[in-house]
Every structure is written in C-alpha cells, then in structure tokens.
C-alpha cells in the first residue's frame, strides 16, 4: 500500500529502499512501498495492455465464423480465446495495484484509457488473420519480451506466460501465410495485399520516435520499460525482412535496404500523422471497436447483476444454515 508518512525521513527511507530494489533489477511486489507516480504509470500501461488484448479480440474474432477450414477455425477460436485469457491476467495484475477490472473497463469505455492503435485498422480478408499473427503479434512480442523482466512483479510474471502464448500466435499466423502462398494465385495476391496494409501500422505499434515519446524516459528509469521505441522498431524490421523473403512477399517500403555499416536495415518513416489521428480516435475502426465493447458490456449487465444477487443469496442461505435455526441474526 502507498503510505504518506508524516516524517520526511521515513519518506526518504522508503524511496531509498525502492530505488535500491530498482537498481538491483529486483521486483517490486504489491505490498512494497512504491511512489504514487510509479503506481499510476503502471496502472496506465498495464490497463492499456489489458484493453488491447480485449479490443484485439474483435478484428480477428470477426473471421471465426468465416474461417475456411475446420482446422483454421479451431486455431483462430483458440487464439482469440487466449487473448481473453491475457486480458484476464493483466486486469488481475492491475488489481494488485488497487484498481478493479470494472473501473478499468469503465475508463476504457469512457475513452479515458487507450488500447493499441493497431486494432483500429480493419480486417478485410482471411489473409489478415495470418498477417496479424505474423506482423502484429510479432511486433507485440518484440515489445513484450523485455517486459518479462519489468520491475513490477505481477506484471512481469503475467508477461512471461503471455509471451509464450504470443509466440504460438505468431507461428500460426506465419504458417497460415506460408500455406496460402503455396495455394492459388488468388491466395498469394490476398497475402501480399494484406501485408501491404499491415506493414506500416505494425511499425507504428512501437510508438512515436524516441524524441517524441513523452513517458519513455521515466519508464526506462523505473525499469518499467527496458528498451526505447526506436530500438525495438529496428529489431523488429531486422527480424522481419528475412521472414518476408522466405515467405515470398514484398514489404511495401522503397527505402528498405541492408546497411552494411550499421549492421541493420534502413527503412522509411511511417506516417506519424496517421498514427496521431488513430490515437486521437479518428482511425478507420475506433468508433466501431468501442461500440462493440460497450454493447457487450451493457448487454451483459443483467447477467452480472443476476450472478451477484445469486451469490449473495446463496451466501446468506449457507450462513443461516450453518448458524442453525436460532443463529440467523448473528450470522449476518
């Protein structure tokens, strides 16, 4: 719990203990003292991540009903189900910081907390299921693997499990695209068209360039974040280029080439104005994604109320039963 001790001395001692834990690369645990800003930053980041998992169920979930084989239908349904599970772990991690799942959901629906901008792009063909696995989950893994060692314990542990499952997701996406590339000309064209649409939004998933990322420096100092946006983006490009070659698709960037001197690929700039617009709420699907989530939440309200009412009634029955016929008042 956060405390606000009267004596500045105690405050300093707590801060020093926190700083030492961070310096040792150790974990901060829920019951440890932590600065209010650290707590707020974590809530913001973990909630955004949780919301991304839940909103992220929609673009791919839309294709479960249309999956073109029974095997692909099972894979996709299991994958989208995993995302609900990730959302659950992350909301739970957030609850250790004193914010409930219901509060976070309401902040999301009120537009006061964000989710990853990538999910505001539409899915237009079945190839998008593959591309999302390969590029979007691939970019997410680049962002998330370092978070397995983030300074806040419950978040780091949730991330270990999530990253393992995400690597399956990436694999299934790549495998779908690989299979489609061995299919018909129409399927190959579908894959290329999908990659063309998702390449730039995937690069945007790492966030704005380092110079324009307002929260990055402090998050790095706290060990909440471990690498800069540009570093991770470069890593993603370097890893993806040979995969695209193996697949037989072209990445839609005329400036993309190997730079011998740097030992990295050079690549063009994503359209940062587009990213800003999507974050602001003006992306192709922002309104639709929130509307879908709000409808599900509101449609389920009567069920959640019924479950609470039933649980408290059952608890009363159990209490009065165990208290015996004359112990009813005491049991309450």
């Amino acid at each position: 719990m956060t405390t606000t001790p009267a004596e500045p001395e105690l405050q300093e001692r707590l801060q020093a203990g926190f700083d030492a834990t961070i310096a040792r690369n150790d974990r901060i645990e829920p019951r440890d003292w932590m600065p209010d800003d650290y707590r707020r930053t974590l809530v913001r980041q973990i909630a955004q991540h949780a919301h991304s998992e839940i909103i992220g169920m929609q673009p791919e979930g839309a294709w479960i009903g249309r999956a073109p084989s029974l095997r692909r239908k099972a894979i996709l349904l299991a994958k989208v189900q995993d995302e609900a599970g990730h959302g659950l772990y992350l909301y739970s991690a957030c609850e250790t910081l004193g914010v409930s799942r219901i509060e976070l959901t309401e902040l999301l629906l009120a537009g006061r907390q964000k989710y990853s901008s990538i999910f505001n792009y539409p899915t237009l063909s079945y190839a998008d299921v593959g591309t999302i696995g390969w590029l979007v989950d691939g970019a997410a893994i680049c962002n998330q693997v370092p978070l397995c060692r983030t300074s806040y314990g419950p978040y780091g542990r949730a991330m270990i499990r999530i990253c393992k499952e995400e690597s399956f997701h990436q694999r299934q996406g790549y495998e779908l695209l690989m299979t489609m590339m061995r299919g018909t000309d129409a399927q190959r064209a579908m894959v290329q068209e999908s990659v063309d649409r998702f390449w730039w939004p995937s690069l945007m998933m790492f966030g704005p360039p380092d110079g324009e990322s307002p929260n990055s420096a402090r998050s790095m100092a706290w060990g909440v974040k471990r690498n800069s946006n540009d570093e991770l983006r470069q890593r993603f490009v370097d890893m993806t280029v040979p995969q695209a070659d193996a697949l037989g698709v072209t990445l839609p960037d005329p400036d993309l080439r190997w730079n011998e001197e740097r030992g990295h690929h050079d690549f063009g700039d994503p359209d940062w104005a587009e990213l800003a617009a999507v974050i602001r709420g003006d992306g192709p699907c922002n309104a639709e994604r929130l509307r879908h989530r709000r409808t599900a939440h509101e449609d389920g309200a009567w069920v959640r109320e019924a479950a609470s009412a039933f649980a408290s009634r059952s608890a009363e029955v159990a209490a009065s039963a165990s208290a015996g016929p004359s112990g009813g008042a005491g049991a309450r």
């Binding site: 839940i54 929609q58 349904l77 189900q81 449609d299």
Partner: peptide
C-alpha cells in the same frame, strides 16, 4: 463461437469458446 468477444464477462467468453472448441473437435 458467435458469442466470442460478446459475453457478459471474460470468464464466460472463455467458457463459451471452450465449449465451441470441444464441439468443433
């Protein structure tokens, strides 16, 4: 599976997907 991402809570979303997956198998 049409319920996916539409259930009253995450736990029910996961349960319905599980059942759909079993039947699909």
């Amino acid at each position: 599976s049409e319920w996916c991402s539409r259930a009253p809570d995450l736990e029910e979303d996961i349960a319905l997907a599980n059942i759909a997956l079993d039947l699909l198998g």
